[in-house]
Design a protein around this nucleic acid. Structure first.
Lengths: 253, 253
DNA sequence: TCGTGCTGTTAGTATATCGGTCACAACAGA
DNA sequence: TCTGTTGTGACCGATATACTAACAGCACGA
């Protein structure tokens, strides 16, 4: 992470480019005047004053009212706390309102048989966790890649298993099975190596008899792998797919 | 909190106005097509597609690849978690870098005798907490207004007192003193009502023998009160001011 | 006392992002 | 085949913001 990237990150947290640059420069300086700041970063001296005023209003720096004015940034840890807690409180209000109005518009169209798609590994993982959370009866989680049995997933699996749900991890890859604690409540089900359900499947998740998620990783897009998943719950589709998947997996209870 | 405010809040969390409107509309709908969304919110139908794509990339909605395409937002709680954790990780990187480069530029100018000013009540409160955290020996915190003895401040006072620091709250206002638990480690020191140190003082904080913060509330600016504070630490100024303040306060140990 | 350089403020320009409109081809159902 | 809807892309204009320039105090020294 270099300075430019840091400035960009700070703008994503709500600062303007000038504010971010001034703040970073002041961190490097410890304390400094507008001229000091303008010297070591690409902000015109005359613009430092306005940016600093804004930063002061956000609680990110203190001001020494002398001539010349001297600025003193709060510590990075302090700044992180303040910025994030400001954003959190903004978020609390907004999402509270959303929870209120949720589903407030009638939607005559009955969208049954829905199959939803998700892009991005983190997003897929979050949906997996969501679906596991809703399990009543049993869960089957399969992947040939150890990195796709994330800690968070394993945690909710364990949690569900502790709550009485039959939870199993299946794989043809020993390293995946080994990452599940042997003495824990989550079962492991090895698969024969020649029995690949789908060639490029990244994850399979079955929950109860009517919920399924399946993902693939396409190496094509951009630099890094792009995981794409689809899922369905409470639909006939899902039920059929779950049954199908079960047949492909040797599930010795 | 109405819809417009919510949209604004979401933009502060990094969404564009269109993205925010689409997301809010989908919460109200449950699920919906681009046309559904365009109907109940001020986003041209043609622009819904792009906004939804972006929201999908952020993990805020799933997509049903049918014709017409149907969108399904994640729950508000889920969305809040994802947005904030995205921002947090952005922040972690940035502030990690800042902690590295901190003070990396030599600053020959010795800025001793610094007195720093702070604007905004929350910012003042944070600095108060910061200074209390650094106490070794004793803390005196005075205010005539019960709302300026915030819970967070009382908490760190108690924490410090538990750690062996002599912590005292002084006030001429009984309601302030009553908000300090009588059986707790923080002492209370009543002041005679006629003994106002400074007419409009909002807070006084003394830490050890060389740190002081003092704030006033000016009713002039804008609609709400604007608290302004100054503080100094480790300076001769501070030492003198601490001594001065002590004389104005009847500190019977 | 009169420069000279620095400080802080303000007006002003340029540009890029984003909100908003329009046109159109692909598609589905009648 | 006709018609309304869908999804895509080009286009425009306004606003925010990065950036420039000019200038009036103030400090300090010749």
């Amino acid at each position: 992470m270099d300075e430019e990237t840091t400035v960009e990150a700070l703008t994503r947290l709500g600062l303007t480019t000038y504010e971010a640059r001034v703040f970073v420069a002041l961190q490097r300086l410890g304390t400094g005047t507008a001229s000091d700041v303008a010297e070591i970063t690409a902000v015109p001296r005359s613009q430092v004053y306005g940016a600093a005023e804004d930063l002061q209003a956000r609680g990110l720096l203190d001001v020494q009212q002398t001539r010349p004015t001297v600025y003193r940034p709060v510590s990075p840890e302090e700044a992180e706390r303040r910025l994030l807690s400001q954003l959190e409180s903004v978020g609390r209000d907004a999402f509270g309102y959303l929870a209120d109005v949720r589903g407030s518009v009638e939607n005559d169209e009955e969208r049954s048989e829905a199959i939803w798609t998700i892009r991005g590994r983190a997003n897929v993982r979050d949906r997996v966790i969501d679906l596991i959370d809703g399990a009543d009866d049993r869960i089957v989680y399969g992947t040939p890649r150890p990195e796709l049995l994330e800690d968070e997933v394993l945690a909710v699996l364990t949690e569900a298993a502790d709550a009485g749900v039959d939870a199993a991890v299946v794989s043809d890859e020993p390293s995946v099975l080994e990452s599940v604690p042997a003495d824990g409540p989550v079962r492991v089900v090895p698969q024969p190596a020649d029995r690949q359900p789908e060639v490029s499947t990244a994850r399979v998740l079955l929950v109860d008899s009517d919920t399924l998620l399946m993902s693939v990783v396409s190496a094509a897009v951009g630099d890094d792998d792009q995981e794409v998943a689809f899922w369905s719950a409470g639909t006939a589709f899902a039920t059929v797919l779950v049954t199908l998947s079960e047949e492909l997996i040797e599930l010795d209870r």
